[in-house]
Amino acid sequence: MRKQFLPALIAAAVFALALAPVVPVRAAEEAEPPASDWPHKGPFGTFDRAALQRGFQVYREVCAACHSLRFVAFRNLTEIGFTTGQVKAIADNWDYAVATLDAEGEPTERQPLPSDQLVPPFPNAAAARAANGGANPPDLSLIVKARGGGEDYIKALLTGYADPPEGVELGDGLSYNRYFPGHQIAMPPPLGEDAVEYADGTPATTEQMADDVVSFLAWAAEPTLEARKRMGFKVVSFLVVLTTLLFFVMRRVWADQH
């Protein structure tokens, strides 16, 4: 049976290599986003809750003016370390209200409850475009999973604004970004030194805020990440043990055939 392993190995290696092109091909013109060490990456990675809370603060104070986060509910914020009381306060102080109907059936508004999804800044895409010069700021709930470069790309984008090089003409209302496909992005640089004052006193450098908000958005895109990796460890370990036992059972059963 050993003779079959070599071609099997070759086939497996070829299959693995063949998978490489499945990763979306990024155009060569944009710069490659520098890689960072994200604490939640890797088979044993976990989220840094302090970073997630700081990141939420950045989202709320900077990004939420234009970007919705509609798949996250206020109550989900307890998963990043807020107490139910703090979550209630966040909901009570949220800048945007939930559209509802009053007793006469007329449209009215109410302050969100913890069970509500995070209320978006604009009620619909048309309103968002009208307020943002024709561009629709995308919802950020899945942005980290929706971009080929993932966390590294989002962080690079946030910190990658620069003056346009020689000869490049910027369109109306657009800014030059080293990492955005086409280099001209409708979003003005969102982060500047001390754009927020962190509740825990961490200095709010642009890089720090970018790190924190990207960590937060990574959590928002995949809140079950830690549970998944924990379960993965248990499942894979169990399967390795069981498969090893099955291997010995198989050898025992086949003993009389060799």
């Binding site: 998978l19 088979p43 379960m231 993965g232 894979v236 390795v240 099955l246 291997f247 198989m250 086949w254």
Partner: peptide
């Protein structure tokens, strides 16, 4: 018994994808 061993190896490969690289084969778009 040989098939069950095969299942074990198959499940390990499936588990590695599901738990550690769930989006590797899926388009980000």
């Amino acid at each position: 018994v040989k098939d069950m061993f095969g299942f074990g190896v198959f499940f390990i490969l499936l588990a590695l994808f599901v738990f550690y690289a769930p989006n590797m084969l899926l388009a980000t778009d």
